[in-house]
Design a protein around this nucleic acid. Structure first.
Lengths: 137, 137
DNA sequence: TATTGACTTGGACATTGTCCATTGTAGGAT
DNA sequence: ATCCTACAATGGACAATGTCCAAGTCAATA
């Protein structure tokens, strides 16, 4: 995730301790924390970091496309740092666990023109749901 | 939507004025109200109906499969009465308008076994995004 | 029409997110 | 090395959405 920090510096971001910590918390695959979870982890390393800063920074990371926002359940939004590899999500209907997955094919091509109602369709999200191995028992 | 009331009666639901009004508000195609929007419309016909009743009733309708819950933006959930025709959603990235659409193909089949991580995958939601005709100007 | 258990109500509370005035500081300038 | 200043962080108030519960009400049955 040092490359993320590098990209942020190139964009003219000031590299504060708070932003470094948030980038660290987000690093890794299959990380899908809520804003408050990011805050909770960040507080372990920087006790005085505020909720507002976490919300602001996540919002900025989303707006520049470094992080994806995932609304899986109408509760808190989750933040997915894996924005540079196209992927979709597989979610356990019981415990809420999220995995990144890569389906075949191109769902955009599956929406016929006469089902587009004049929209300029540019993006598609696919969310698979089912029971994870632990919850199938 | 009288058939909805009929089905509810068969399930042993008490048909109260509140439930009748909520069913009426939900009737029609391409209806995707939030809970508070349903409440606002219901109040026009039954001024004393409470928010709690609307939330309770919508939750029950979802749990018996008569209405779908759609989390499009991490804000309020929306309720889609068109639960008996399989469909997906097309959403305007600017104004939030929602259309029901029917893509070709079967997205479930596009998730290979080695991308299922042991999940029992049972459901898939596809959300298309883009600019609607009014917002393209 | 009397009864009763399911339904509704209203308000308190919880969670998630936003806003803003104040304070702090990273990074360039001296 | 120190100073400046625009940008960033803080914390607390507020807003939006949703949940819960004790008390009152009523639809459906006998």
């Amino acid at each position: 995730m040092t490359d993320l920090l590098e990209r942020l510096r190139e964009r003219g971001w000031r590299l504060t301790a708070q932003r470094r910590i948030i980038a660290e918390v987000l690093s890794g695959d299959h990380v899908h924390y809520t804003a408050d979870e990011v805050h909770a982890h960040a507080v372990e390393r920087l006790p005085e970091i505020s909720r507002a800063t976490v919300y602001n920074t996540l919002g900025e990371l989303v707006s520049i496309g470094e992080v994806l926002e995932v609304s899986t359940d109408g509760r808190a939004k989750r933040y997915d740092p894996n924005a540079h590899r196209p992927h979709q999500h597989l979610i356990c209907s019981r415990c809420g666990t999220i995995r990144d997955v890569q389906p075949r094919g191109n769902p955009l091509a599956d929406l016929p023109d006469d089902e587009r109602f004049g929209f300029a369709v540019s993006q598609v999200e696919v969310t698979y749901r089912g029971l994870c191995p632990s919850c199938r028992g």
